[in-house]
């Protein structure tokens, strides 16, 4: 069974580590192929790695997550993007969805929260 390749976009190192740790518990299904610390890097890494899914933080330096989502979706309308954020206001959620995000996960979250949302997103395909 082919593993789903995941790109993590997140500026806090401990968050990146934790997401990697969580995905390690489902090694048979997911493989982390790389990470980016801001929106600009995310776009570069996306075209380079062509991952199956991107986890996207919203508040980052250089370029924020909303802009990055828009750019990536422009390049590849089939890209799967999961927003992971602490900014859980209805306005932010709407903005992310308008930009083209496919899933939404609020911080804080458990391993089960993350795996459930991923399963749901890949299940849709």
């Amino acid at each position: 069974m082919r593993k789903n390749r995941i790109l993590i976009v997140e500026d806090a190192p401990y968050m990146r580590e934790m997401i990697i740790e969580m995905l390690n518990h489902a090694k048979d299904r997911y493989e982390v192929v790389g990470f980016a610390t801001n929106g600009k890097e995310a776009i570069e890494k996306y075209s380079e790695l062509k991952p199956d899914l991107v986890t996207m933080d919203l508040v980052m330096e250089e370029m924020d997550g909303i802009q990055a989502i828009r750019k990536i979706k422009q390049e590849d309308p089939n890209a799967l993007i999961l927003v992971i954020t602490a900014m859980d206001t209805p306005e932010n959620r709407n903005m992310a969805m308008d930009a083209g995000a496919d899933g939404y996960l609020w911080k804080p979250f458990t391993i089960n929260n993350l795996l459930d949302v991923l399963e749901e997103m890949f299940g849709k395909d």
Binding site: Y14, M15, M18, E21, M22, H25, A86, K107, P108, F109, T110, I111, N112, N113
Partner: peptide, 9 residues
Amino acid sequence: TPIVGYASL
């Protein structure tokens, strides 16, 4: 976030 995340791990 990491407290909740790592506790679940």
